[in-house]
Design a protein around this nucleic acid. Structure first.
Lengths: 250, 250
DNA sequence: CAGTGGTCTAGACCACCGC
DNA sequence: CGGTGGTCTAGACCACTGA
């Protein structure tokens, strides 16, 4: 009976990991890729119970988790619907400029100005937790939206942890995009600060020296192993990081 | 048998709301107030089952939720322990300068420079979602740590939603502290940006005009009702917003 | 009123991992 | 090996709220 509607109710499960996470992914995918725009009604729990052949508690855990992360809104009687801001990037996640620019409908481009292998003693960045003899790949990359600079990226990659990065040309995909696609991580840390653009930084971003920039410093780990450090400069006063949240529960 | 240890295992439940949230609060309180320092072992699920006279699924939901928010770490066999960073302020929550300063062991002070009742047409701030006839309380407040300026606060309060604010002197507690204590909210939105300090802003923060500042704009709602808007200026390059996080699940 | 999510139960099997 | 959390079930009653 339900067989005919299977293809409409979201992707199949991938068989990887706990059931409730599989279901979460299956439902999250059409939300984040836009197939289910905000306002779309998601089938009721009892219906999903049949759809995926599982108990209601398992479905509930998946939906509760999606609601907790703001992808859907749930109300009694009304049901579960895709949240208005489901596609908005939460501030404290790793997001990719390339994706951001393309999503806005602009033409994305990048340029690698510098590429070098350096030690941890270098004046580049503040990569914490790497040994003194660790070889690091240093990159200076600029990102453009319709030809306008939108981000200047200072990047350090731990070659002991990611040796294949040394052989990568970064012609097709920028380092950030390449890393997101090829390197799994388990922890990340952001620091957000304001700095004035000086010298080469100002020049590349086409800013008057002294202009205020929003800088994001980000380091990622895989377990205890530091993977990469990035300092991302965003020009001027127009760049905003936006986040929505709710009160703590205690 | 278990009666003798009851008092040691955390506060009693408050009877308010769902059981699992009560249990969550009961366990969270000693964590955030420091009674259970990082590393403290929390009783096993089966033990808490007896402690609170509930089923294991309910306990599990409370602990899972605490783990999700980074207050505890859980591992099979090792059990549940208070996380190292449990007391660290997550970036995307409402935090209070006063508390921040006191926590660092410094002397906190504040000064209210301006206080006025204005309309939404005013050039102050960008308070969204309030009607044209709404009366707003405007405040300009500066916060100090050991006498040094740490934050300049431009604040708008919706007097239709919070009429008692009009009668408040803000002598004992700064507006931000007072609001946190007296006004419940359900939604908040942050925007983080970099701006150059000019004119009075630079003067009050004791900065050279043109210095880069980290600005946080924050609006809170209670349901659909806008409560308050704040623009918080943080001096110079020394102020950082830090956050830790994990990969998305999809 | 009735559909939907919110919560809770009592039990089960399994996977991990420190002892 | 055995303690602990991870997950899952089948069912139950309740609370809210839109039609």
């Amino acid at each position: 009976m339900t067989a005919t509607t299977l293809a409409m109710d979201g992707p199949e499960l991938d068989g990887d990991g706990p059931l409730w996470l599989q279901i979460r992914r299956a439902l999250a995918q059409p939300i984040v890729d836009g197939s289910w725009p905000p306002g779309t009604k998601i089938p009721a729990e009892t219906e999903l119970t049949e759809r995926y052949g599982t108990s209601r508690m398992t479905i509930n855990k998946a939906l509760h988790s999606l609601a907790h992360d703001g992808l859907v809104e749930r109300r009694r009687k009304r049901g579960t619907i895709v949240a208005d801001r489901a596609q908005q990037h939460p501030v404290f996640e790793i997001w990719d400029v390339a994706e951001e620019v393309r999503r806005a409908g602009a033409i994305y481009a990048f340029n690698v100005y510098e590429r070098d292998i350096v030690g941890v003693d270098s004046e580049h960045g503040r990569f914490t937790g790497v040994g003194a003899e660790t070889r690091l790949l240093w990159l200076l990359v600029e990102h453009f939206s319709n030809g306008q600079p939108v981000q200047l990226e200072e990047r350090l990659i731990n070659l002991d942890a990611i040796p294949k990065a040394a052989k990568e040309s970064f012609r097709k995909a920028a380092p950030s995009e390449w890393l997101l696609k090829h390197v799994p991580w388990t922890q990340a840390e952001h620091a957000i600060l304001a700095r004035e653009a000086r010298g080469r930084t100002a020049k590349l971003l086409q800013l008057r020296p002294g202009s205020a920039c929003l800088v994001v410093e980000r380091q990622t780990w895989d377990g205890a192993t530091p993977l990469t450090f990035a300092r991302l400069w965003h020009p001027g006063e127009h760049h905003r990081l936006v986040g929505r949240f709710e009160p703590r529960k205690y």
